[in-house]
Amino acid sequence: MMTLEEFRNLLDAKGPDPDDWPRRQQRAAKRLLLGSADARVMFDAARRTDAFLTEALWPAPLNPTLRARLDTIPLANPRTPETTRIVMRQLRPWWYAGAATAMASVIAGFVVGAMLPAEADLNEPIAIASLIYGPSNGGLLP
């Protein structure tokens, strides 16, 4: 059985239109309305408040000056032709892949650079090869 307080909460949370009430609460509320004069008074007051607020808060027509400003948006900001946008969209994954490859190369360069011994003779191929091979020399590969 729904209490008057629960009914008031229902009205304030969902509004006075029974179609907006959850089905289970709808049945209980309708039973309460049939049996309680207080509930009916509450329901009528909620409907009046709702009608008043709907009318009072309805948006005023748009100010013509603002409307004129809005109408300039398409002219001031011409859209990119659709074909160009399609091509750009198709190229986007390649652009990301290229950027990722470039970033990975830079990072790899820093890593290798940091691992080179300061005194290493970079003109000597064996010094560089020993960085990559040969764990005994701290190389990257086994």
Binding site: P59, A60, P61, L62, L75, R79, E82
Partner: peptide, 17 residues
Amino acid sequence: VSGDRHAFGRLMDRHAD
């Protein structure tokens, strides 16, 4: 999306206020 200014105007008619 295809650059129709009138469609943009109709969308504003509906929601701008």
